[in-house]
């Protein structure tokens, strides 16, 4: 090794190749692509300190082997789990506000109003559920459309943004209430205990959908900037 010679560095074209390499290995999101591409670049440059004649592609393959037989997939999966957990923490944070004063007064009034309506007819529960589903689907469709357009323009996808604009999988959230509605349809009446439980359930679903479909997408920018300091530089 010639000590007077400046160490060989990764070029812009090679950096682009590293980004492409991560994409080829199923890393879809820019946040993780950038971190892994920088890791590979550092490792390759370190190899060049020992052997400056080493071919870039050869060094890249050798470094990738260090990630094990599953490549980047394990990192991607665990990153997804970590950010999904973060998403639900954010969701719960906003949801909790409705259980504290003064918002709690509104929540309580809503539960009482739904309770009164449910006493008029058990079918009102099904009507509520159907209305929530229709409104949610329309809003989700609009959000997705806007988000896909933005991704197409910027060319970058950010994992937390993807999760926020998937709105917490509201379909699975409606599974239990729909099952309950089938039960009500068959029984054609509601017990005294079931009515307040369903009133609370309906209001909880409305609040959940409101947080997931309105509040969080509106506050997405704030949370993305907190999570990704590079977001403002890249998305400018």
């Amino acid at each position: 090794m010639n000590k007077n010679k400046a160490p060989k560095k990764i070029t812009a074209a090679q950096m682009e190749r590293l980004f492409r390499f991560t994409r080829e290995h199923f890393v879809e999101h820019y946040d993780l692509q950038a971190e892994l591409a920088d890791h590979l670049a550092n490792a390759i440059e370190e190899r060049w300190v020992q052997n400056s004649g080493l071919d870039f592609e050869e060094a890249l393959q050798a470094e990738f082997k260090k990630f094990g037989v599953f490549g980047f997939s394990d990192i991607v999966e665990k990153r997804q789990n970590a950010l999904t957990k973060k998403y639900y923490k954010l969701l719960w944070g906003y949801f909790k506000n409705f259980l504290h004063l003064p918002q709690f007064l509104g929540t309580f009034t809503a539960v009482a109003a739904v309770y009164v309506l449910l006493q008029l007819s058990p079918y009102i529960y099904i009507l509520f559920l159907f209305s929530i589903m229709v409104v949610s689907i329309i809003k989700l469709f609009k959000l997705k459309k806007g988000y896909n357009k933005k991704v197409k323009q910027s060319g970058h996808r950010w994992l937390l943004e993807d999760i926020i604009f998937s709105c917490g999988g509201f379909g699975s959230m409606l599974y239990l209430p729909i099952q309950l509605s089938l039960h009500i349809y068959e029984e054609r009446e509601m017990s005294a205990l079931l009515t307040p439980v369903l009133a609370i359930l309906i209001v909880a679903i409305i609040l959940f959908e409101y947080v997931a479909l309105y509040i969080l997408p509106n506050k997405a920018q704030k949370h993305l900037l907190e999570t990704y300091p590079e977001y403002s530089i890249i998305e400018e």
Partner: peptide, 23 residues
């Protein structure tokens, strides 16, 4: 420390609010 273990550990600590990131 293998790369496959390091990054999930860093991301988990970050999601738990124990680490902060700078770019």
């Amino acid at each position: 420390i293998t790369e496959g273990a390091l990054y999930p550990a860093l991301h988990k600590l970050e999601a738990e609010g124990l680490l902060d990131v700078e770019v």
